[in-house]
Design a protein around this nucleic acid. Structure first.
Length: 383
DNA sequence: TCTGGGGTCCTAGGACCC
DNA sequence: TCTGGGGTCCTAGGACCC
């Protein structure tokens, strides 16, 4: 139990992927730019040396918008929107393929820069981290400005920071003054600044819970804070209702998680058109093999073996089905993974067309080194 | 032409063991 | 033969996040 006030920061990079692309293509600054789709619309170099970019209206396929610049957002284009729909809203927007290699590179740079100042950080994906400032001596505003400057020096990019007594409020805070902002929240700010907000603003209340709460006449966090534990327990599970009760009051005791091991690794692909096992057998088989080979290579690169292998199907109507199986011995071998995943596939109904096929491994263990292999295998066998 | 890909955590039932 | 409780693993599905 923390017996003193903590100082937790949440740092969120501003329009991260789009900003990385603008570092590379500064001539697109101030333009509506959309990032997404597969790596086809790579900019070409024209004879006069300038770059030729694809227009969003040229896009054909089933991709979604990964992110977009503020100028594109002003036209109604947002993350997770279908690209074809986005193309109708902003046909003249520039289109760039996502380059995750580059984003991971800048992600490493900004995280390293932050750790030079505050070593206690928790990864929250490629463009966010929590930072524990509790043990640092400088005042909050100074620390926040130093961190932002360090990120800018290391990457040329801006970020927004929220600082609060816990992760829940810090996360909300980082959204309040975007881009390039600093927001400090204390518990005293909860009634005035948090309660007027929609319940959806709480990290952990998604589309389903938000819709359910609104239908119950609880659209805001303030309304949520008026509900009794008993009322919430009637409509949500025990754990979730207890969490809702605390979150509405800005209470959150979750500790910083400064290191963690992966729990699962997966590869999946959405087909250009829906495929059927009967008529597209060879194509599906090739894709299936490719996913297993990629997964085996992911495991080896990261140094893990997996005991549980599974498949994921998405049918043409968007229903999802999963099947998995646990092996007696953990593996990182593509053939073994394919065999096990193939067994899973046999247990799935395959009458309907498929939109997506995925393969997933879980129950991961660090791969034993050569020397300790027999003992480690024996230990796994004996449980 | 609506709706990607890679993750985490939770729930819940059944098997199996003590 | 009946009764029972706890713990762990396995499997499937779903909500949610970036």
């Amino acid at each position: 139990m923390p017996d003193r006030q903590r100082r937790i920061a949440h740092l969120d990079m501003d329009a991260f992927y789009a900003s990385v692309e603008l570092l590379r293509y500064p001539e697109l600054c101030g333009e509506a730019v959309v990032i997404g789709g597969r790596s086809v619309h790579q900019p070409a170099i024209k004879s006069d040396g300038t770059r030729k970019f694809a227009k969003l209206r040229d896009y054909v396929g089933r991709g979604v918008v990964t992110t977009s610049t503020f100028e594109a957002r002003a036209l109604g284009v947002h993350s997770a929107m279908g690209m074809m729909k986005a193309a109708k809203l902003a046909p003249e927007a520039w289109l760039l393929p996502a380059d995750f290699e580059a984003y991971r590179h800048y992600s490493r740079l900004f995280k390293q820069a932050v750790r030079q100042i505050a070593p206690q950080t928790e990864d929250r994906g490629i463009d966010e981290i929590y930072i524990d400032l509790t043990d640092l001596t400088q005042d909050t505003q100074t620390l926040a400005m130093r961190i932002k400057q360090a990120v800018r020096d290391a990457t040329g990019l801006s970020c927004s920071i929220g600082i609060a007594p816990n992760k829940l409020l810090a996360k909300i805070g980082s959204e309040l003054d975007k881009p390039d902002g600093i927001t400090v929240l204390s518990m005293d700010d909860v009634p005035t600044r948090i309660w007027p907000m929609a319940v959806r603003k709480i990290n952990g209340i998604g589309p389903k819970a938000s819709e359910k709460l609104t239908a119950l006449g609880i659209p805001t966090i303030g309304e949520l804070a008026k509900q009794s534990q008993a009322f919430l327990a009637q409509h949500f599970g025990k754990r979730y209702s207890e969490w809702l009760y605390q979150a509405a009051r800005g209470l959150d005791e979750r500790a910083m998680i400064t290191s963690s091991e992966p729990k699962s690794i997966s590869r999946e692909t959405t087909f250009e058109r829906d495929l059927h096992v009967k008529t597209d057998r060879a194509k599906l088989s090739d894709i299936f093999t490719r996913l297993c080979v990629q997964l085996a290579s992911d495991l080896r690169r990261k140094g893990y073996v997996a005991k549980t292998i599974g498949v994921k199907l998405r049918y043409g109507d968007f229903r999802i089905l999963t099947r998995d199986v646990s092996l007696p011995l953990a593996t990182d071998d593509a053939d073994e993974i394919r065999r096990a995943a193939g067994e899973c596939l046999k247990r799935a109904p395959l009458e309907q067309r498929l939109r997506l096929l995925g393969v997933r491994v879980s129950a991961l263990h660090k791969k034993p080194t050569q020397a300790e292999e027999p003992e480690a295998q024996a230990a796994l066998l004996l449980g």
